[in-house]
Design a protein around this nucleic acid. Structure first.
Lengths: 125, 125
DNA sequence: GTATGATTTAAAGTTGACTCCAAGTTAGGT
DNA sequence: ACCTAACTTGGAGTCAACTTTAAATCATAC
C-alpha cells in the first residue's frame, strides 16, 4: 500500500506519516524502488499511533513503547507500566474535561436563557 | 492579592499569569505602586482560564471569549455559540480518550496476564 | 518517450503555549 | 538605611509536533 492510500485511509497527512516513520512512532517501512510499501502490520501501528495521539499521548510515549516492543519479551512489564501510567493520565484528562463541560454547560444554559428572555442571570461562579 | 499568592492558590506559575494578562486571557490587573493587585473578580478569570485550559481549550478561544464579554450584551449570542462549539470539541475529545482507554485496557490486561502466566496472547487489534 | 503526477530526502520553517533572562523597581524586616 | 526577597518589563528562548520547501526520482497514461 502506498503512502497516499494510507494517508487517506487514516486521515493522516503523508508528511506526518513520513515524520512518524522518521522518529519511530511507526516502523521503518520497506521500500520498493525507493517507494514505501505499507504492510497491514505497518497499518496497525499507524492506527495505534492515531488512536493514542488523538487522545493526547505524546509522540515520545509512543516511541518509547515501540522501542520496548522491539527489544522483546523482557520488556513486557515495563510496557505494562508505561501503558498504565499513560492510562492514568488519560483518566485525569477526562476528569478535567468533565469539569470544563460542567462549567460550559452552566454558562451556555444561562446564555440561552438570556437569548430567549432577555435576562442574563449570573452566579459568576 | 499579589501575584505570588494567586500563583500558589491556583498552581499556575507567575510567568504564566503575566503571560495570560499580556495576551488577554485574564483582565489587565490594576497596579499599586507598579505591583499587580489581583481582585477576586480577577481570580475568577484565572480560575476560568485554568479550568478551560486544563481541558484543552486553546488560549486563543479564551481570549476571543473574553473579547466578546468586554464588548457587552450585544455579543451574548456569539459567546453562546463560541462556548457551544468548544463544548462540542470537548465531547469529541472525550470520545477519543475513551477509545484510547479501551485500547489501553485491552493491552494492559494482556500484559498483566503475560506477567502472571508467562503467556502473551495477542489479538494484535 | 514524454508530460504529468506521485513519491523521495534533508533541512528549514511554523505554531501554540509557555518559560527564561536581564536589568531594573519595590517591599519588608532589622 | 540597608539587605534581601519579591516584583516589574521587554524580549528572547524553548519545546512538541508537525508542516513546508526544494530538488530529485519514479510511475503511468497517452
Amino acid at each position: 500500500m502506498k503512502i497516499a492510500e494510507v494517508s487517506k485511509r487514516y486521515g493522516i497527512p503523508q508528511e506526518t506519516l513520513r515524520y512518524y516513520e522518521r522518529v519511530n512512532v511507526i516502523p521503518k517501512i520497506a521500500r520498493e524502488n525507493g517507494i514505501r510499501n505499507f504492510t497491514e502490520d505497518d497499518c496497525i501501528w499507524v492506527q495505534f499511533a492515531k488512536c493514542l495521539r488523538a487522545a493526547g499521548l505524546s509522540v515520545e510515549a509512543i516511541i518509547e513503547y515501540r522501542r520496548l516492543t522491539l527489544i522483546g519479551d523482557s520488556t513486557i512489564e515495563a510496557r505494562c507500566e508505561l501503558l498504565k501510567s499513560e492510562r492514568e493520565k488519560l483518566i485525569d484528562q477526562k476528569r478535567s474535561i468533565d469539569e470544563a463541560l460542567e462549567l460550559l454547560n452552566y454558562k451556555v444554559s444561562r446564555y440561552e436563557e438570556a437569548v430567549k428572555t432577555g435576562v442574563l442571570s449570573w452566579d459568576k461562579k
